[in-house]
């Protein structure tokens, strides 16, 4: 089958594709990923509702946990690694993340400034 040439030829890995491992090793990868993701999810839900930690730290903790869990998903489920055969996939991901960061960060930044600098709505109405 011509599409099986990727097994032998010297090529990059497709996104989502693993290096050639045995079935057992591949299943183990998913099990480890599932366990880590469940652990991080449980921590997130626990942190969000607890009184045990310093309250202002909760939003930061939730965001850090979310980013960690996305990393776990990327590595164990989507098999995006830093290996040389994954360079193209990682570069595309990095560019996507740049745009996401610009869109979200830029919007929040600018809109917060606009909101802070704008007089309340009733003042605008009175001037007219």
């Amino acid at each position: 089958m011509s599409d099986e040439t990727h097994l032998t030829a010297h090529h990059d890995l497709a996104p989502g594709e693993e290096e050639q491992l045995s079935v057992g090793a591949r299943i183990l990868g998913y099990v480890v990923g599932l366990a880590l993701a469940l652990l991080l999810t449980a921590t997130s839900f626990f942190i969000a509702g607890t009184d045990l930690v310093w309250q202002p730290s909760i939003p930061v903790a939730l965001i850090v946990l979310a980013i960690a869990q996305m990393g776990v998903h990327l590595v164990f489920f989507l098999h995006i690694t830093t290996g040389p055969d994954n360079t193209n996939n990682v570069l595309a991901l990095a560019f996507g993340l740049l745009i996401v960061f610009l869109v979200v960060g830029g919007t929040v930044w600018i809109m917060a400034h606009l909101n802070a600098n704008m007089p309340p709505m009733d003042q605008i109405m009175m001037r007219q």
């Binding site: 011509s2 599409d3 040439t5 990727h6 030829a9 090529h11 990059d12 890995l13 497709a14 996104p15 989502g16 594709e17 193209n88 996939n89 595309a92 991901l93 560019f95 996507g96 745009i99 996401v100 869109v103 979200v104």
Partner: peptide
């Protein structure tokens, strides 16, 4: 590159653009 890699890479680009849409 083999068609398998080309297809999956193209789909990966689509997914990233989908994620950019979600970021909005």
């Amino acid at each position: 590159a083999p068609k398998r890699i080309v297809t999956a890479y193209g789909f990966w680009i689509f997914l990233l653009s989908d994620i950019v849409m979600f970021s909005c």
